[in-house]
């Protein structure tokens, strides 16, 4: 019984790890779409879909979020954030 309960807890923790990625994508897309108003993104959902896909493919979205926040909406810097932490 205890083993099952620990398994349940582990699953919950794994779920939370995934949610943290989602949180980074939330914050990143808020920055790109709402704060910077980047026209490349037709909608917030589109941005989130791209971010989630990148995360699934191995992109370091947490580190990219920090880079994006430091870029302060400078597109030249944002491109290099993708090179450093995205799928390139």
């Amino acid at each position: 019984m205890l083993a099952r309960l620990f398994f349940l807890a582990a699953c919950l923790l794994a779920g939370c790890e995934k949610q943290q990625e989602n949180s980074a994508c939330d914050d990143m897309c808020t920055e790109m779409v709402a704060m910077c108003g980047m026209e490349a993104y037709p909608s917030m959902d589109s941005c989130l879909q791209g971010c989630e896909y990148n995360a699934d493919q191995g992109a370091d979205v947490g580190a990219q979020l920090l880079c994006v926040q430091q870029a302060s909406c400078d597109p030249f810097a944002l491109v290099e954030c993708e090179h450093a932490y995205g799928l390139d």
Binding site: L5, L8, A9, L12, G15, C16, Q19, N22, D26, A40, P42, M44, D45, S46, L48, Q49, G50, E52, Y53
Partner: peptide, 26 residues
Amino acid sequence: LTLIGGLALAGCTQEYEISAGPVDVN
């Protein structure tokens, strides 16, 4: 654990649904 799990799930609730796969912007 059910209570903790419930709280954890509530804390982790995803507020949007993302379709799978890469984006294909028109």
